[in-house]
């Protein structure tokens, strides 16, 4: 390379040192973790390779869905029961979480109450609905009320956290104005803060409702009301075309509710400047996590 204007081999930057070593370490950790896990789950290569085929055999038999049979058995009613559970559960969660959120926000609550309320939110979020339902079923008996309570109490964790973050992002001007007129703490919250956060908090509630519809469908699997029980019993009888119908109806209703709720949420938020609230990317991640039943 004698040409003066072809420095391509010269000027190409070399990767920063340490990257290779870190990459090797990461790869090693993955391999060790993977191998250790495989030994624990006792999976042979044959079984591993056979599984997609086995799964496909089942999925093939879900089609065509036995819609008539499902309608006769009242599957639509069961799906709606799941929706009712989610709706009432969300209302319980909303009613319990909103006052608590005011006690957890840095800008309006004193430290001695803030810390325990925040820890309460964290603890609630840590326990999945299914576990809450497992504890509630002996107390309330089998049925939709156990599922509703489980969803309601579990929702307090996320709804409380989101509302707290919304309160922390408000403009403090109105609050000061209320204080300047001699208003009490409660008046400040009611007239200085609540009107600012209500649109975003309402959209959080709707969002949580979407999540709860999926969660309540799952709760039926352990007997807490809703469509899950139907899926379990049809699978037990290996009545796969009925299973296909149950899945189809569930997915249809879930997607319809998602679309409707998302449209309403967009209308609520449109025209409202973002009042802080959780960082959007992070909230998406968390919301999605909730959506799928996987919780932080």
């Amino acid at each position: 390379m004698t040409a003066t204007h072809t420095p391509s081999t010269v000027s190409r930057p070399s990767p920063p040192s340490g990257v290779r070593r870190r990459r090797a370490l990461l790869a090693l950790a993955l391999v060790i973790g993977g191998v250790w896990s495989v030994t624990g789950i006792d999976v042979t290569l044959e079984r591993f390779l056979g599984a997609p085929g086995d799964a496909w055999d089942i999925f093939k038999r879900l089609w065509p869905p036995a819609m008539d049979e499902a309608l006769d058995r009242g599957v639509v009613g069961k799906v709606f029961e799941s929706v009712y559970i989610a709706w009432i559960g969300t209302i319980i969660g909303a009613v319990l979480s909103l006052p608590l959120a005011f006690l957890a926000a840095t800008n309006v609550a004193p430290r001695w109450i803030r810390v325990p309320v925040r820890q309460l939110f964290n603890a609630i979020r840590a326990v999945p609905e299914l576990i809450v339902a497992v504890i509630f079923i002996p107390i309330t008996g089998l049925g939709p009320w156990a599922g509703t309570l489980a969803i309601g109490l579990h929702s307090v964790g996320t709804l409380g956290k989101w509302a707290t973050e919304a309160i922390e992002g408000v403009d403090t001007g109105p609050l000061e104005a209320v204080e300047a007129t001699g208003g009490r703490w409660v008046s400040g919250m009611r007239w200085g803060i609540l009107p600012q956060i209500m649109p975003i908090v309402a959209s959080f509630w709707l969002f949580r409702f979407e999540i709860n519809v999926r969660a309540s469908a799952v709760l039926g699997m352990i007997g807490a009301g809703g469509v899950g029980a139907e899926l379990v019993s049809q699978l037990m009888f290996r009545n796969f075309s009925a299973v296909g119908a149950v899945l189809g109806i569930t997915v249809l209703v879930v997607l319809t509710i998602d679309t409707m709720s998302a449209a309403v949420r967009r209308r609520i938020i449109a025209g409202v400047t973002r009042t802080g609230g959780p960082d959007d990317g992070d909230r998406n991640a968390e919301a999605l996590a909730d959506l799928t039943g996987f919780r932080r």
Binding site: G40, I41, D42, V43, R47, A51, D54, A55, D57, I58, F59, L130, R214, A215, A217, V218, M221, G228, L231, V232, L235, R238, V243, L247, T250, V251, V254, L255, D258, L291, T292, G293, F294
Partner: peptide
């Protein structure tokens, strides 16, 4: 569509397909 099916529904389906257990 995959996301619209709740996670434990998947688990139950796959338990039926490949047998009870960690696999």
């Amino acid at each position: 569509v995959v996301r619209a099916v709740p996670d434990l529904f998947w688990a139950k389906l796959l338990v039926t397909a490949v047998g009870i257990g960690a696999f």
